[in-house]
Computed example of a mutant assay.
Amino acid sequence: MMRLKGQTALITGGGRGIGRAVALELAKEGANIVVTARHESEIRETVRMVKQAGVKAMAVQADIRNEEDVWNLVSKTMEKCGRLDILVNNAGIAHRKSVEETSIEEYEEIMDTNVKGLFLCTKHAIPHISKSRNGKIINISSGAGQHGISDLSVYSASKFAVNGFTEALASELSGRAMVYCVCPGAVDTEMYRSMFMDIPMLKPKHVAEKVLELSLPESNVLSGSVIEVYAPPIPQL
């Protein structure tokens, strides 16, 4: 049984990594998928992959830092799908630099994407998600949003903000929608590999599986929860 059949999920940063994995995972349960990112070629490839699950899918190029783009994104979602049930705020960016080396442009890029973009998408999605019997807002944060990491000070600050926003929003939307925050450890993504040399055991699919669990109507996780995700243990021979 497809437990999300007929529902619509909007996923930011859906062109690769965690966002693409989430799109594929929710599609397997029957959700129609809308993905957005700044690079159209990447989200079109995600849509191609999602459609193989037999659901509707749409790519909308947008810069979530721009309110007009976000308004257009939500409007197109409603026009195409007629409803919005699940918002996954996944888009994010990081620069691995000390505070002294970080430019104001880099600071603004991180904060505008990771915090302002999440705020704008949430603000414009709430009126529609509130009408769903399974309204869910799931914010992808980071372990760096719970414990500050050297040379990722601005990124950590942005993710601490996401965690606090999640908890406050859950209270605001009590009885209207459920709000969650997922905090993965190091994930094997292009962004991570651009900053570090090691290859983490935690994969995008592992994070996507947790997002799916929270998205399901039968989820009984308390709204406002901040949930950590770690790599599964290595099987013992």
Rank of each mutant, 00 (worst) to 15 (best):
L4R: 08
L4Y: 12
L10N: 10
G19I: 01
G19Q: 01
V22C: 05
E25A: 14
A31G: 03
E40H: 09
S41F: 12
S41T: 12
E42L: 15
R44N: 15
T46I: 08
T46N: 06
V60H: 01
R65K: 15
V70M: 00
S75A: 14
S75Q: 13
M78F: 03
M78Q: 07
K80Y: 02
R83I: 12
V88H: 07
N90L: 07
E100K: 14
S103F: 05
D112L: 05
N114P: 03
G117W: 01
F119T: 07
L120D: 05
C121E: 09
C121R: 08
A125C: 15
N134C: 14
I137E: 03
I137S: 00
I138F: 03
G148Q: 04
A161R: 05
V162T: 01
T166V: 13
S171V: 15
A177Y: 01
Y180G: 08
M191H: 00
R193V: 06
M197H: 14
I199N: 11
K205M: 11
H206R: 04
E213F: 14
L214Q: 08
L214P: 02
P217E: 07
S219G: 03
N220W: 10
I227T: 02
Y230P: 00
A231V: 10
P233K: 04
I234P: 09
L237R: 12
